[in-house]
């Protein structure tokens, strides 16, 4: 379980290039760094659920990203807050 405040990087991965899949991690966040705000609960993993495969309940987090850094435009201090499943999050070594 990732504690609030943990710095993470979203996996820079594109499973959609390898075959049919259902992903709830937006393209614009792949490879971006953010901060875990809180654990929202454990939910059946959509990447299995969408294909009627047995879906483990995995931790889902609210993760905060600096909005201007993601887009190269915006207002200092503005944030994007996104629900992401644990398999997509890599912790950054301090």
């Amino acid at each position: 379980m990732l504690a609030p405040g943990t710095e993470i990087r979203v996996k820079l991965d594109w499973p959609e290039t390898r075959g049919p899949c259902h992903i709830r991690t937006p393209h614009y966040l792949r490879g971006r760094t953010g901060t875990v705000e809180r654990h929202l609960g454990d939910f059946p993993y959509p990447e299995d659920l969408a294909f009627a495969r047995p879906a483990a309940r995995l931790p889902l987090y609210h993760v905060r990203f600096d909005q201007p850094s993601v887009w190269g435009q915006g207002h200092t201090g503005d944030a994007l807050v996104v629900e992401l499943f644990e398999p997509w999050l890599e912790t950054i070594a301090p």
């Binding site: 937006p26 503005d78 629900e83």
Partner: peptide
């Protein structure tokens, strides 16, 4: 206003 912090919540999953 510039002084307000904006949080854009992208509803991507189960909530």
């Amino acid at each position: 206003p510039d002084s307000i912090r904006l949080r854009v919540v992208d509803s991507t999953a189960d909530y």
